[in-house]
């Protein structure tokens, strides 16, 4: 009886062991940290940081890779009407060489990188929350292979508020003449 139980258990465990995924290549992933709701004032530019994480063992090209054929990391944001997306700031890449090209320096992002987005709602925007949508295009490699370019959705919310009332200067007054 005990022998049968042992045999059955052994068979189950063996099949579990063999059915483990054959260690192969992992698929690279880039994820974005949740962006806390940012308050932006109508008519004023506000910087918003978007932080991206690259899975260990992979790198993506920076926004300015060292070869015309390499695909740069690029963010595109489609904002609602009357919310202007200003300059997108990319950090400089890390100059790194890899086993596949030890003599060549590539400009890459590894582990994580932060992109800065300038958001400026026009004064005509109705105050409230707005979701901004976009996508990040990147192309990842590990130390021996590269993965086709990918686009990941990038979404974050902003809260548009009215600016402080315009500072009014006192109208110029004619000097009082006290007689």
């Amino acid at each position: 009886m005990a022998y049968n139980r042992t045999l059955i258990s052994l068979l189950i465990f063996t099949s579990l062991a063999i059915s483990q995924d054959i260690p192969g290549r992992k698929i690279p992933s880039v994820t974005m940290s949740p962006v806390p709701l940012k308050t932006v004032t109508r008519g004023k530019p506000t910087d918003i940081d978007l932080r991206f994480h690259i899975s260990p063992g992979f790198h993506v090209n920076s926004n300015k890779p060292n070869s015309e054929f390499l695909i740069p990391t690029a963010l595109k944001i489609n904002a609602p009407t009357d919310i202007v997306i200003g300059k997108i700031t990319y950090p400089p890449g890390q100059e790194a060489s890899f086993p596949f090209a030890p003599d060549e320096k590539l400009s890459v992002y590894r582990t994580e990188f932060t992109l800065g987005v300038v958001v400026r709602p026009l004064v005509s925007v109705v105050p409230g929350k707005y979701m901004l949508h976009g996508e990040l295009k990147y192309q990842a490699c590990d130390n021996a292979a590269c993965y086709p370019p990918k686009k990941m959705p990038v979404d974050f919310e902003v809260k548009v508020v009215k600016g402080p009332p315009p500072h009014r200067r006192n109208p110029a007054q004619s000097p009082h003449v006290h007689g």
């Binding site: 258990s9 052994l10 062991a17 483990q20 260690p23 192969g24």
Partner: peptide
């Protein structure tokens, strides 16, 4: 006997894992 079976299974998984890890040093899927 459960402890023995678990230990055997662990050994099998480790041996299999090492074997595959060695194989995967030369990439073939």
């Amino acid at each position: 006997f459960i402890i023995i079976v678990a230990a055997m299974a662990l050994t099998i998984m480790l041996v299999f894992g090492f074997h595959m890890a060695r194989r995967s040093s030369r990439p073939i899927d």
